[in-house]
Design a protein around this nucleic acid. Structure first.
Length: 807
RNA sequence: GCCCAGAUGUUGGAAUUGGUAGACAAGCUGGCCUUAGAAGCCAGUGCCUUCUUGGCGUGAGGGUUCAAAUCCCUCUCUGGGCACCA
């Protein structure tokens, strides 16, 4: 029996969509859309390998959502672009010896071909390529706007430095403390870099979490990443000096248990407080700490190291003298770069104190009793203050308040909130990115390039490999570097660092509806109409960086009067990960699946349907190729049914099943449970075809509409074969369930005796208990078990269960 | 170490959110049809059993309940993220 040829049908409908511009918006369409819906998905980095099946999975799931919104009557704008700048592309280009300027366009065209082949409804009129000067011109503009808003700052920051290659290396290029390329020990070095002050927005980013509809795991990740801590800054006077060491602590209640102080190696007071006797040891220690690369420095399981610097502090509560140490387990970038060490109640301090034989004092006890005997581990739990003089007996919470209060009256403490979030360093000493639009002038300093002079074009360099200068390869292009100072017109030199790829992607969604404008980055009319984004779907791996940066830029633009809204994405859903035979798909495992052959063999519709059938979209699924036959034959049977269908009235029993299916599908698709949507459609088709019956068209039409998001080509084809002459996506055809028909009248419910299933009875929602009992008693098996004793209790939940307790 | 997610037949996964565990598929077994089958159709398929009966069964162990995959406690394992954040 001839059903359909996927190749022909798919080519036919893709051709027709292109020809009619079904998925395209003209500038006028964008301006006049009545029911706008911006369906965004994370744009890919166009690798040389092409899209793998995981990408297809993600984009199909997002496209299903967009097509579903369209069937519900929205004007769905669904653009796609390419995140093509960055170290990824650059490293690959270096490896294969091709200039990224040549490599990227061919990768993009390959990606475009693949994305078109899966039949997603992308608007190819509104696409972005982050490496296009017409795009990065505006990325540079974003930088300038943030600069204007006072959110850009240049300061020294540590980078990994390979002393042999004499270049900056990324964290990923440091393998066990050694340079990936030359095996030399990597060290950290301080260089001047550009930062965006995202920390100014720490609290706002946290507060905004309350108002957005995002996957909860993504919000949790952002919450943890921002890492708000409440505590106090406390000053510990330095013995013999008119100065204090300021520390941040979340546990002021444990201050009486502080037995020593620790400064980070980079702390300015280390130099000032070190006495002559300790000088040599301390200098050597600080030097050694500096030599560690950034990754090794942060490695937790390293044994604690450090040295006494020869100074003392006074505990502002107990008055006790405490030695001041220096150790790299205290980080200069968090808090004040100094801590009071409470070994009795902090695991790290305990480890350090044990190593160096420093006193360990219990000041919190679980139950308030003053347990004797030495502590064998730090106690970090809740409890009651002990050995704390006047504060004994207070709970941890009350102790915190009381101690901070007392110190506040002496001006020695202030309540303080701190965040783990760091400012965003956007400087990259690399080639493949947008040049940071800054000019240095001996007289005027660092001056932003005027908006009118954008873009600062990235010159084509044949030698783009980082060299031993330690600067971006751009520094070698002296013609490019030398320019005029925008301020005084004198001699200027360009900034040679390029910006982080994450800056490109922190605002791309704002640009999509505005790609028709060359004069401005953001067309106010379009932004007002289409933003914020209604739905964003992407990988959970971007839970913190990309998604946080995009929120930050949006908030900053809002405050700077550029945008009316403060949150970019109303709704965000993280899709799951596809595994293969239970294992992660990765290049190193060699189990990467390129979808082209699969699509050539089965067709895009079958592949789409299969991928969506694997598991809940937000949880991912396991790819096993044999499974594709199920969805394939489902589509075949559906096509067969359409071919056989006659006109006329639908069978009532089938129509009831149909409306129940509409009900279930409509609610499951909202929750992205595409797998159960598909199984519901399969179940319904099984009812339609039960016992080899031939069906009527009326019974098939709604199922074809509901299938359309998953298998758009075949849905169009069957819709046409059923006699319709406009696109199935044109006029909001999503069906609505008739509640009367969808209602289930009689249920088979289980009958349990003492909680064990012994039979079932057929009831309605209104069947009263006595009637249900009577029915149960007519069941032989039930009766046998009832005979075992006296009926003590009957639990009857109409429509659910009848449980009879017998003893 | 901390945080998040998860563990259900041979496999992917369902389960009205406390109410008949295993839907829908894949695989396998048998049958029909066929020159053929990666086509279509039909039947069977959690384990044990005295086989129309009964018992067991959702990572392990305990608990709550008339009733637990679902709630609570303890633990194990897997995947992911963060990582000396005071």
């Amino acid at each position: 029996m001839e059903t359909y040829s996927a190749t022909e049908v798919e080519a036919k409908w893709q051709g027709r969509w292109d020809e009619l511009g079904t998925n395209l918006f003209s500038r006028e369409d964008l301006a006049s859309a009545e029911n706008p819906y911006f369906n965004l998905m994370m744009f890919p980095y166009p690798s040389a390998e092409g899209l793998h099946v995981g990408n297809i999975y993600a984009y199909t799931g997002a496209d299903v959502w967009g097509r579903y919104q369209r069937l519900k009557g929205h004007d769905v704008f669904q653009p796609m672009g390419f995140d093509a700048f960055g170290i990824h592309s650059e490293n690959y280009a270096l490896k294969v010896g091709v200039n990224p300027n040549d490599l990227i366009p061919s990768n993009i065209s390959n990606f475009t071909r693949q994305l078109r082949r899966i039949g997603a409804m992308f608007d190819w009129n509104h696409t972005v390529d982050t490496t296009d000067p017409n795009y990065y011109r505006w990325t540079q503009w974003v930088f300038l706007k943030l600069f204007e808003a006072g959110l850009v700052e240049k300061r020294e920051a540590p980078v990994n430095w390979c002393p042999s290659c004499k270049t900056v290396v990324a964290n990923e290029q440091v393998i066990q403390g050694l340079c990936e390329r030359c095996d030399a020990a990597v060290e950290q070095r301080q260089i001047e870099q550009w930062f965006l002050k995202i920390t100014n927005y720490a609290q706002r980013l946290l507060d905004g979490i309350e108002q957005i509809d995002w996957s909860s795991r993504t919000l949790t990740a952002q919450n943890n990443w921002i890492g708000r801590s409440e505590g106090a800054d406390i000053d510990f006077p330095i013995v013999g000096r008119d100065e204090a060491i300021r520390v941040f602590t979340t546990r002021p209640d444990t201050i009486c248990g502080a037995t020593y102080m620790v400064l980070a190696p980079e702390h300015p007071l280390v130099e000032a407080l070190t006495n002559d006797e300790q000088r040599e040891t301390v200098d050597a220690y600080v030097e050694q700490a500096k030599r560690l690369d950034l990754k090794a420095r942060q490695y937790v399981d390293r044994p604690k190291t450090g040295t006494w610097i020869g100074a003392y502090c006074e505990n502002p509560i107990t008055g006790a003298q405490m030695p001041v140490w220096v150790s790299d387990y205290v980080l200069i970038e968090y808090g004040t770069g100094a801590i009071m060490a409470v070994p009795g109640h902090d695991e790290r301090d305990f480890e350090f104190a044990s190593t160096f034989d420093l006193p360990i004092k219990r000041v919190i006890s679980r139950d308030g009793s003053n347990n004797a005997g030495p502590m064998t581990e730090a106690y970090v739990g809740d409890g009651v203050l002990v050995n704390s003089g006047e504060f004994d007996g207070l709970s941890v919470a009350k102790g915190k308040r009381a101690i901070v209060q007392k110190l506040e009256t002496n001006g020695l403490a202030t309540g303080q909130v701190r965040y783990r979030l760091h400012d965003w360093c956007i400087s990259r000493q690399r080639y493949w990115g947008p040049p940071i639009p800054i000019v240095y002038c001996d007289d005027c300093g660092a001056i932003p390039v005027p908006e009118a002079d954008l873009p600062v074009l990235l010159p084509r360099l044949e030698q783009f490999k980082p060299d031993d200068s330690g600067e971006s390869p751009l520094a070698r292009d002296t013609d490019w570097c030398s320019t005029e100072c925008p301020e005084c017109g004198g001699v200027g030199t360009r900034e040679t660092d390029v910006s982080d790829t994450f800056l490109d992607s922190a605002w791309y969604f704002l640009r999509y509806p505005c790609t028709d404008s060359d004069e401005v980055a953001l067309d106010d009319e379009m932004v007002k109409k289409w933003l914020p984004v209604n739905s964003y779907i992407g990988g959970h791996e971007h839970a913190v960086l990309h998604l946080l940066y995009a929120r930050f830029v949006t908030m900053a633009f809002h405050d700077h009067g550029i945008l009316e809204f403060g949150e970019p994405f109303e709704k965000f859903r993280a899709h799951g990960i596809l595994t293969k035979d239970g294992r992660k798909i990765s290049k190193s495992r060699g189990n990467v699946i390129i979808p082209d052959d699969l699509i050539a063999e089965w067709g895009a519709d079958t592949v789409r349907l299969y991928l969506m059938f694997l598991g809940p979209f937000e949880q991912g699924g396991d790819y096993q190729e044999t499974g594709i036959r199920g969805p394939a034959s489902f589509l075949d049977r559906l096509a067969l049914s359409v071919a056989e269908a006659s006109d006329g009235e639908g069978d009532e029993h089938v129509l009831q099943a149909m409306h129940r299916t509409i009900d279930k599908v409509s609610s499951d698709i909202e929750q992205l449970k595409y797998n159960t949507v598909i199984s519901a459609l399969m179940e319904y088709l099984n009812v339609v075809r039960e016992g080899g019956r031939t069906c009527v068209k009326q019974e098939l039409e709604p199922i074809i509409v509901m299938l359309a998001p998953f298998a758009p080509h075949l849905a169009e084809e069957l819709w046409e074969r059923l006699g319709h002459n406009s696109s199935i996506f044109e006029s909001g055809l999503w069906p609505e369930a008739d509640p009367d028909l969808a209602k289930v009248e009689t249920f088979e419910i289980g009958v349990q005796v003492n909680g064990k299933l012994r039979g079932s009875i057929s009831v309605t929602a209104e069947t009263p208990e006595d009637e249900a009992m009577a029915l149960a008693r007519s069941n032989e098996r039930v009766v046998t078990h009832l005979d075992a004793g006296e009926v003590r209790k009957v639990i009857y939940v109409p429509g659910r269960i009848l449980n009879i307790v017998v003893s």
